[in-house]
Write a protein that binds this DNA or RNA. Structure first.
Lengths: 167, 167
DNA sequence: CTAAACTTTCAATAATTATTGAAAAATAAA
DNA sequence: TTTATTTTTCAATAATTATTGAAAGTTTAG
C-alpha cells in the first residue's frame, strides 16, 4: 500500500469508527487528517482534502478546539488561520477521557443521586433505590478510575495494571 | 418525588444519555425499564410503558439479548414471552465492556496494524507510522486493561486501584 | 389438521442529525 | 476610512437513523 492511500484509509476508518462512539463522523475525520498531516492546515486545505463545505469545516474545527485536541496556529506571511492536532496520543487519550468524564459521566452521577432521594417505603421503592445505588456505585468507581488515569503518566496503564488485580 | 415519577425520569435520562455513547435511545430505555421492573415484562407491557410499536420493541429487545444483558423468561400459564434484565450492575458493566471491546476496539486494532504495513521510506512515511504505532499502543493498553477488568471481581476497581498508580 | 396467539420482518415514513452555501460579521491591509 | 480577505452563522436541504404497522411467519392448543 502506498502512503497516501494509507492515510486516506486511516481517515475514513476513523470516521466510521467514531459514529459507533457517538462522535460526528466529519469531526473525527478532520482530527485524523490533522493528526497525520506534517504541517498545519488551513480551512481550505481541509475542505479540499475531505471534500466538505467551509461551514462544515468551521463547525467541526471549532468543536475539536473546544475538546482541547486541536489548536490554531499562525503561519508567517499568511493571513488566514491554520490548525494542528497534538501528536502525543497519550495526551489525546487523556484529554478525551477528561472531557467525556466531565460532560457525560458527572451529570449522570448527579441525576442518580437526585433520584435516590425518592420518598417511598414500599418493597418496590427499596428495590428501585438499590438499583440506583448500584448504578451510582459502579459509575463512581469508573469515574474515579478515569480520574486517576488522567493524572497518571503514560506508562501506568501497561506497567502497573497487574498490581491492581493481584489480591 | 414519587416512585413512579422517579422511575420515568430514570428511564428518560438513561435514554438520552445513551445517544451520546452511540446507543439507540429506545434500546437504552427498554433496558432501563426492565432494570427497575420488579417482574418480567411482555412485549405488550413494554409497548404500553414506553408508547412504542410492537416492531420497535421486538427489534430492541432482540438487540439487548444479543448484547447479553436481557434474557427471555417464561411465566407459568402464559403463552407469550417475558423479558428480564439482570439486576447485578457490575455484571452489566462487565458484559457491556466485553461486547464493545469485541465489536469496536478489536477491529480498530486490526486496521491499525494493517495500515502500518505501508511501504514508504520517506520522512513523512515514518511520521505516519509513528502516529499509527502510538495509536495502536494506547488502544492496546486500554484494551488489555478492559480485558483484565472483565476478569476481575466486583471490588477490584475501588479497593485495588490505588496500588496501581503508586510508583 | 386448523385456527388462534404470538413473534418477526421490512418497506414506507417519520424523526433526528449533519451539511451546505450564501449572507452577515469580523478582521486586517491599504 | 474604505476595501479586500477571512471567519462565522444559520435557514434550507440532504443524509442518516429510528420507528411504525401491517403482512408474513411461527408456534402451540384444540
Amino acid at each position: 500500500m502506498e502512503l497516501n492511500e494509507a492515510k486516506i484509509k486511516y481517515i475514513q476508518t476513523w470516521g466510521s469508527l467514531a459514529t459507533s462512539w457517538g462522535v460526528n463522523k466529519t469531526m473525527a475525520q478532520v482530527h485524523a487528517l490533522l493528526l497525520v498531516s506534517t504541517k498545519p492546515l488551513s480551512a481550505e486545505d481541509i475542505m479540499d482534502a475531505l471534500k466538505i463545505s467551509r461551514g462544515n469545516v468551521n463547525m467541526n474545527v471549532r468543536a475539536l478546539i473546544d475538546w482541547g485536541i486541536v489548536k490554531k496556529e499562525f503561519v508567517v506571511g499568511e493571513r488566514k488561520e491554520f490548525f494542528v492536532a497534538g501528536k502525543d496520543i497519550w495526551e489525546l487519550f487523556k484529554q478525551i477521557t477528561k472531557e467525556r468524564k466531565k460532560r457525560e459521566i458527572e451529570p449522570v452521577l448527579k441525576v442518580l443521586e437526585e433520584l435516590q432521594q425518592v420518598e417511598d417505603n414500599t418493597e418496590e421503592g427499596a428495590q428501585f433505590k438499590k438499583v440506583l445505588g448500584d448504578l451510582s456505585s459502579v459509575t463512581n468507581q469508573v469515574n474515579s478510575m478515569l480520574e486517576k488515569a488522567i493524572r497518571a503518566d503514560e506508562h501506568w496503564l501497561l506497567s502497573n495494571f497487574t498490581k491492581m488485580i493481584k489480591k
